[in-house]
Design a protein around this nucleic acid. Structure first.
Length: 312
DNA sequence: ATGCAGTAACCCG
DNA sequence: CGGGTTACTGCAT
């Protein structure tokens, strides 16, 4: 499944080199490439064309792209072309949602499907019990750009993304603002392992579950929990989530809650789309949502060769 | 009261 | 038919 040992995901054990220069500019290239591929997928741009746009040789682009996304540009394009993400909305999968949804939204619990242990904390609990809480935060590379992560000693509590080198500060502020009472400490080393695990779902196992802390209102936490049971490479709609949690008409409120999801990617808010298959919105940018969806779909298909000679 | 990451319906090329 | 726009909802905050 994972045949790219050179992938940044494969080995980001603990430390993150404080030298994001090369990494950051690489991502900028990737970002523009993704932008081009996703906005112009209709015309099926060639690798050469994209390389030209981002100012790299085709082979270099191929190399960098592959390192970041684990897929060749060609394979990625193929994945994104399913844009009418309708294809991901398989009616039968919705029942799967019902099946794995359980009650009891407060306190620890585990999603058997995904092996993410989570703990819910209401704003009230957080305010009283977690006022002096220390939150460590750090920066790490990810397949979707430079990621900013936050964690308490109980587990991961936030993931955000930065678009440019300076964007880190912005992303950090975005996350930090959500827990005004906490004190923050920069600690890349402590964050590293979370990043490594979070962006490699293959690492989520019963023996080493990803520990996550959800901080929000009851309604929000319920929505986020439900999201956790949407299988990788699938998609659901706001309305379906609403139905699943027993408020069939709260689609719109669900949308609002989904948008506040603090742990992007791990809580797969990118798998929620409009009823007609349109990608409605994403806090960290629609392009990134597309990238995640495409990445997952391609990943799930277990596509291997990913060469230009790939099947049409 | 407010605003929303929804939705169904309609209109146009 | 596909894409863009409108009018209307129901609900958490």
């Amino acid at each position: 499944m994972f045949d790219a040992p050179s992938s940044p995901l494969g080995d980001v054990p603990v430390a993150f080199t404080p030298e994001p220069a090369a990494t950051a500019s690489d991502y900028d290239v990737i970002r523009r490439a993704l932008e081009h591929l996703t906005t112009r997928f209709r015309s099926q741009p060639t690798v050469e064309e994209v390389a030209d746009v981002v100012g790299l040789s085709p082979s270099h682009l191929h190399h960098v792209f592959r390192r970041w996304c684990g897929l060749s540009p060609k394979a990625f394009l193929q994945a994104v072309t399913l844009d009418r993400a309708r294809d991901l909305l398989r009616r039968d999968d919705v029942n799967l949602l019902d099946a794995s949804y359980e009650l009891g939204l407060s306190g620890p619990g585990r999603l058997h499907d995904l092996f993410v242990t989570h703990e819910a904390m209401s704003p009230g609990d957080f305010k009283t019990g977690g006022a002096g809480l220390v939150i460590r935060w750090g920066v790490a590379p990810s397949p979707f750009g430079v990621a900013v992560l936050t964690a308490t000693d109980r587990g991961l509590c936030g993931i955000g993304f930065a678009d440019q080198a300076g964007g880190v500060q912005e992303a950090y502020r975005d996350l930090a603002r959500r827990w005004p009472a906490a004190s923050f400490v920069r600690d890349d080393a402590a964050i590293g392992p979370y990043a490594a695990q979070a962006f490699d779902p293959a690492c989520w196992s019963p023996d080493r579950p990803l520990r996550v802390v959800l901080i929000g209102t009851d309604f929000e936490v319920t929505v986020w929990r439900t999201l956790l049971s949407v299988p990788l490479g699938c998609a659901t709609t706001y309305g379906d989530i609403a139905q699943t949690i027993g408020r069939p008409k709260a689609a719109r409120a669900v949308g609002a809650a989904v948008g506040k999801n603090p742990i992007s990617f791990v809580v797969p808010c990118h798998r929620v789309i409009g009823r007609d298959g349109a990608l409605t919105g994403y806090h960290w940018g629609l392009t990134r949502k597309r990238a995640m969806l495409g990445w997952e779909t391609a990943k799930r298909r277990g596509d291997g060769p990913a060469e230009d000679g790939a099947v049409a």
